[in-house]
Write a protein that binds this DNA or RNA. Structure first.
Lengths: 122, 122, 122, 122
DNA sequence: GTGGTCTAGACCACA
DNA sequence: GTGGTCTAGACCACA
C-alpha cells in the first residue's frame, strides 16, 4: 500500500480531504482489513501537514468505524464488516442524491439513464 | 410564487442553502424569467435570517447569471438562456460526479443502473 | 446559569472533566434546552484553558447530542429529548455497572441495599 | 486456578484490565492467599501481551498489597487480611460513587433502589 | 515508537 | 463576534 501526496483543494478542510483519500483506498481495496496504517507522524510527513491534522483524520475515520486506533500500537483498518457497512451507506446516499437531483430538474428515469450511458466511458 | 421557509442543515452555510432553494425554484419552473424576487428585507423575513445573508445569496445567484440586480427596481430572474445554461452545467456536473463515485467503488455501468432502477420510484 | 472553575484532576484529560462538568449542569437542570452556552473564548477564559480544549469539549458534547454547535452563532443546549436520552443511558449504565461490581464480590441484593442505606445520607 | 484470555477494551490501559482480571479472581476466591501466580513470562503468553505489561500489572497489584513479589520464588497472593482490606475499600468506593451518581441526577433513595431491584436478576 | 492531550496563536468563513 | 481549521511544538502514558 502506497500513500501519496494529494493536491489539496483549498476550499475544503484538509483533514476531510485526507480522510476521503484514505477511505477511498479502502473502498478500492488498496487498504484491507487488518492493514496497519503508517504512524501519525509518518502520515503527517507524507501529506506534509501537521500531526494534529492527521490525528483529526484518524478521529474522523474511527467515528465511521473505518479504523481502530490503539494507543501505543498504531492504527489498523477495521474488520471487513465495517468497511462494507460504510460502502453500502455511501452508495445508498450517492444513488438517492443523484435521483433527487435528476427529479428536481424534471428528468425521467429514461433521461437519467441516457445521460449516464453517454458519459460512462468518457 | 411562494417562498417558504426551509429546514436548514446546520453543517452547510445558510446562504448556500437559500441560494439552492431559489435556484431550484427556477429549475422547476416555479420562478420564470422576468419574475421579480421579493426585496432583500422581505426575503430576510421570509427565511428568518439576517439581511446580510440574503445579500450574499443575491451575489451568489448573480455570479451564475441566474438573477439580475437592477438598481432602483430590484432583483429579476434572468433570461431563459441563462437558466438553461445553468441547468445544463448542473446536469453535466451531477452526472459526472455520480459516475466518478460509482467507479470509485468499482461499480460497473450495469451495477449503477440497477441501483438507480431499484430506487427511482421509492 | 453560572459557570465556575473546577479543580482539575490531573489524571484525567481536562476536556473530559469540563465536558462532565457541563453535562452535569444539564442533568441537574442548571442548564436547560435552548440555553446558549458562553462562547468558546469565554469558556476558555472561565476554565482557564486553551480555546482548542474547549473546542474539543464542544465536539465531545455534540457527539452525545447534548449541544448543537452552530457556526457564527454559538452553542445551544439540545432539545429536551436528547438530554433525556443521555440521562437514561447514563443511569442504565451506572446501575448495571454497580450491580456487576456487587455480584463480582458475591454480594446479594440485600447486602447491596444495606450498604446503600447506610451511606445514603452521609 | 486457570488464567484465560480476556477481551480487551481498547480505551483502557491493558495493564489495568489485566490487573482487574487478576484482582477479581481474588475477590471471587478463585485465587487464595499463598497461591503462586504463573511467572511473568507465562502470564505474558497467557494474555498474549508484552512481558513489560505484566511487569506493570505486578507492580500495580503489589501497590495494593494484593501480591508479594519474592525474589527467586515468584509472585504470591497476599495474606487474607490484605485481600479483605482491598475488598472493603473497593465496596466502600463503589457504593459511594454509585450514590454520588444517583444524587447527581436528583434520584431519591427510593428511585435508586427501584432501579437496582428491576435490574438485579436480569 | 505509538497515539493522546494541551498550549499559544494565526487565519478564515459565516451571521 | 462566533465557531472551524491549522501549525508548531511540548509533554505524557502505554506497549
Amino acid at each position: 500500500m502506497v500513500m501519496y501526496m494529494i493536491e489539496f483543494n483549498k476550499n475544503r478542510p484538509i483533514y476531510l480531504q485526507i480522510s476521503e483519500d484514505i477511505a477511498n483506498k479502502m473502498l478500492k481495496g488498496n487498504l484491507v482489513p487488518g492493514d496497519k496504517l503508517p504512524s501519525i507522524r509518518e502520515l503527517a510527513s507524507i501529506y506534509t501537514v501537521n500531526p494534529n491534522t492527521i490525528q483529526k483524520v484518524m478521529h474522523h475515520l474511527s467515528s465511521f468505524n473505518l479504523v481502530e486506533v490503539v494507543r501505543g500500537i498504531g492504527t489498523i483498518v477495521s474488520k471487513s464488516i465495517y468497511i462494507e457497512m460504510y460502502k453500502n451507506k455511501l452508495i445508498e446516499k450517492d444513488v438517492s442524491e443523484f435521483i433527487k437531483k435528476m427529479k428536481n430538474q424534471n428528468y425521467t428515469y429514461e433521461d437519467a439513464i441516457t445521460r449516464i450511458k453517454e458519459k460512462w466511458d468518457k
